[in-house]
Nucleic acid binder design. Structure first.
Lengths: 110, 110
DNA sequence: TTTTCATATTGCAATATTACGATATAGATT
DNA sequence: AATCTATATCGTAATATTGCAATATGAAAA
C-alpha cells in the first residue's frame, strides 16, 4: 500500500516522527548546519551553499518550515530563514529523556 | 531522479540524516518507546504491541538495526532487541550542540 | 523427526520522496 | 513601466518507502 498508518499511533509519536523525518535527509541537515554556522538568519545564499538546483533547495526549505524546524521571515525581496529553537529543544529533550532512561535501567541484557 | 545526492554532503551529514530517517516513522518511534518502557530487552512481543502485520514490524526492526538504533541478540528461537545507547548518545549530543550554539548567538533577528 | 513457534525474506501494489527544468510570483532597481 | 533578483510552484521522471500475503527459515518441543 505505501501509506503510513498514522491512526494506530499516538499524536505524540506521529509528531515526533515528523520532526525526525524532516531531518532525515542530508540536504536538510546541511541547511540546518549552515543556518547555525552563520550568525543570525540567512537571507538568500542558501541555494549557493548547496550543490542542488534552486527548486530542490526551495522544496527542502519548505519541508523544514512545515515541520517547524526553521522559521522564515519575508525581508524585502528575499526571505530570512533561521532555526526554530523550540523544535531543537524538543529533539534535545527527547533524546535526553531516552538517554537518562537508559542510564537508569542499566543493563539487564544485551 | 528521485535519488538522494549523498556525494555532495559530508559523511557526518549523511550519517546524521540516516539516523534521523530511521526514526522518521511513527512505527519505529513506537518500537523505540516500547523497548524503553520495558526493562531490558524484549524477546518476542513487539509484533503484538503494534497494530501492524508481522512482516511490516520485521521490516521496521531491520531498518532500526541497520541504522544502529537497536541491537538484536539471538536468544533461543526468539530475538532479543534493545536500544543501542551509542546512537541515542550521538543524537543527544548533536541536538545538545545545536541548542547550546543557538543559546550563545542569541538572536540577531527572527 | 514432525510439529510448532518466532522471525525473516520475497514479491508486489499503492504511495511518497527526490531532483530539476520550466515557469510563475513578487519586491527592488532602474 | 520594464527589468532584475530571489524564491515558489508545477509537472514529471526516477527511485524509495510502506504494508502485507505468501512463503521460507531455523530453533525448540512434542
Amino acid at each position: 500500500m505505501g501509506i503510513t498508518k498514522t491512526e494506530i499511533f499516538t499524536r505524540q509519536q506521529n509528531e515526533t516522527a515528523l520532526l525526525m523525518k524532516a531531518l532525515g535527509h542530508p540536504a536538510r541537515i546541511a541547511i540546518v548546519e549552515y543556518l547555525l554556522s552563520v550568525n543570525a538568519c540567512i537571507c538568500g545564499d542558501i541555494v549557493n551553499e548547496l550543490a542542488l538546483a534552486q527548486p530542490t533547495v526551495s522544496q527542502h526549505l519548505k519541508e523544514l518550515k512545515n515541520a517547524g524546524i526553521i522559521k522564515g521571515n519575508i525581508s524585502g525581496n528575499a526571505i530570512c530563514y533561521c532555526i526554530d529553537e523550540t523544535a531543537i529543544a524538543t529533539l534535545r529533550g527527547y533524546f535526553g529523556g531516552i538517554s537518562d532512561n537508559l542510564e537508569k535501567k542499566k543493563k539487564m541484557c544485551c
